[in-house]
Amino acid sequence: MEWLIFGFLSTWAVLSVMGVLFLKNPVHALLSFVSLILSVAGMFIHLGAELLAGLQLIIYAVAIVVFYVLVITTIPWEKVKRFEGFYKREFFLGFPVLLLSFALFSYAILNGKLAMVNLEVKDNVKEVGKSLFTTYLFPLEVASVILLTAMIGAILLGRKEE
């Protein structure tokens, strides 16, 4: 049963990655990116990370994708038409290198051993939330400062030049 779910989710993810890489229209690529986000959220649920799956849906599939769609609507369509698709020469040069690196990585993973600690975690959301606000409180504050800085930077970049 576990492998059945894995096969379904991974096939879905691989198909949507192909859509992101090779579809011509940017809007179609964005839609297959949404499909990829949904499959990755399913993988998170399968791996027992429910809080992260929910946040993935909220942050990626709602906030980030809506932002992309807004930016696509601001750009005139005939300008986008000139630059759709992918570079052929870079495709044929880059594909063997990435295939070789994937083979090396998968060899290392299949023959290596993961560390075995085996701490049992029962309630995922409770545990993650507790450690976020006790052990990792300072990184959480730093993350909020990063978000504030990004907001100010986006406003400065997006304003009209005088």
Binding site: A49, L51, L52, L55, Q56, I59, Y60, A63, I64, F67, Y68, L114, A115, M116, V117, N118, L119, E120, V121, N124, E127, V128, S131, L132, Y136, P139, A143, I146, L147, T149, A150, M151, G153, A154, L157
Partner: peptide, 23 residues
């Protein structure tokens, strides 16, 4: 491994991804 530290780290990666998209 059976811990939760990776999920906390992935949460911070989500925050960085949001700010990266904005900028």
């Amino acid at each position: 491994v059976g811990g939760i530290e990776g999920q906390v780290f992935a949460l911070f990666i989500l925050a960085v991804a949001a700010s990266e998209v904005a900028v």
